[in-house]
Write a protein that binds this DNA or RNA. Structure first.
Lengths: 272, 272
DNA sequence: ATAATAGTGTCTATCAGACATTATCTG
DNA sequence: CAGATAATGTCTGATAGACACTATTAT
């Protein structure tokens, strides 16, 4: 606190007392959270979606999320949401991007701060207040399409993608433009959030330890490699991969199977 | 639009008509923008700051910024701000991070979406509504301190930095904790925004063309290398640097001096 | 034994780091 | 010419890509 006076002759204390915050129109701000994990046999990624129980986008599948409260950070709101959905705490959770396009929510002016969470293994999803349902969807993301599938519920959501590049100053961006191909769709602009998160994840995976968040605390190298490959959606050479991660690993001493079928057992590791 | 009815028997149209958005408390949302450019002799970076003319943080230097309006995106708000300050349009402008800590603004609940802009060369800064003053500051950012200096105005703002690492799931982050060392300080949490932006810029500079935003449309290789070195705050080997950028360049055919002092003239290039 | 998977060896091309040398300009 | 800067040459060590080979397990 200082005692300088402003043009109206008010100190900071006086100014704050008379300050009227009600002059500007304010947006609602929510967090939307992408909860991503490996599927049962480590052959691909899964995304947690909830089914909306009310307008707008009633009966559509959507990213879990909720309003940020006045006494919490966006991170805390996202962590709360994550725990409500999965029961998990102490999990990788990172801010991706903030979406602000006017009209993205037909109800009112709503901005959304998107978070990405990478969870180790699948868990049962809990019930949820506003949601009719919650379920893991198989996530296939490649250069030409996004496919979200839940066979149990008979739901398939497909967007075709078109790459488009545009300039930001001297920097050229590659962007994916989605076009809906199925009856079912994701609510709001949640496809765009998904695209942005997957782009960022792919850029960072080699320079971070994000892939380690997708496997258990102790893991085998075939499992870890599967996590990298699922994120990148392309195969990696075994030897190069192992050379790359080798200095991040510590052997646990035990061995176990990575695979249900035949073959040798794998050494177990933990992250150094 | 679909005609499904919700639990209360309302269609989407009816629901939206009766929807009352006023139940939640809403934050104000602003954009704060880091405008960064090279200094006169390409020996370092400069940051554009404005001097606050009112409480809170009266007479403190701060990042330019302003409230987002209902009919615009955060990007548009930042671009508007950038043009008001510098007169520049069609400039590199990218969302960095959204700051939401409760209490970061003593007036009321305010979130800030931070943007980074990289501008080619220094320009005169224009006047500004709420600001008493606006000026370019020399920016020195290294592992142990941040220094912002404007010799003309006799202003020096210094923070010492302490590296701290913390875990986010399996991912370890390196964070800088700032401690103020001078009378003068940056307003609000603007040091933290600056730190976040510089961290991101340094991570991305090698995998993007951001450095090209800091030089003119036609540039020499000594100038471009100086831009990389100013961002990274360390020297690069000339040959390796030139090999790295060579495939991004086109010669213009002309030559000119890069330096005020003696020495050979440099070839001019543009970005491919 | 055979199929399947885990793990290692080795060659190559690329590239950043490091340093040396040549080229061109000013005074 | 000397001093300064621009541009290029070359060696080295690290590493990703590519492929081949050995090791271990289930049936």
């Amino acid at each position: 606190m200082n005692n300088k006076k402003n043009k109206d002759g008010l100190t900071e204390k006086q100014f704050l007392k008379q300050y009227n915050p009600g002059n500007y129109k304010r947006p609602s701000v929510t967090t939307d959270i992408l909860i991503i994990g490996m599927n049962e046999d480590y052959s691909g990624l899964k995304l947690l979606l909830i089914k909306r129980g009310n307008h707008p986008y009633i009966d559509c599948w959507a990213l879990p999320g909720g309003f940020i409260e006045e006494n919490e950070t966006a991170y805390q709101a996202a962590a709360r949401e994550l725990e409500e959905e999965t029961g998990l705490t102490d999990i990788y959770l990172d801010q991706i991007y903030t979406f602000t396009k006017p009209g993205r929510d037909p109800r009112t002016w709503v901005m959304s701060i998107a978070y990405l969470s990478l969870v180790p293994r699948l868990r049962e999803v809990k019930g949820f207040d506003d949601a009719e349902d919650a379920a893991w969807f198989d996530l296939e993301f490649n250069d030409s399409s996004i496919e979200l599938t839940n066979e149990e519920k008979g739901v398939k959501i497909v967007y075709s993608l078109k790459k488009e590049s545009f300039l930001n100053g001297a920097v050229r961006y590659e962007n994916y433009i989605p076009t809906l191909k199925t009856e079912e769709a994701l609510a709001f602009d949640h496809v765009e959030i998904l695209i942005e998160a997957m782009k960022k994840l792919r850029e960072q995976i080699f320079y971070s330890n994000q892939a380690f968040c997708l496997v258990d605390k102790t893991f085998t190298l075939p499992e870890l490699q599967a996590a990298y490959e699922a994120v990148l959606n392309r195969p990696l050479y075994k030897k190069s991969f192992r050379d790359m991660v080798s200095e991040k690993l510590v052997e646990t001493g035990t061995e176990r199977r990575s695979n249900i079928k035949g073959g040798r057992t794998s050494k177990e590791y933990t992250l150094k």
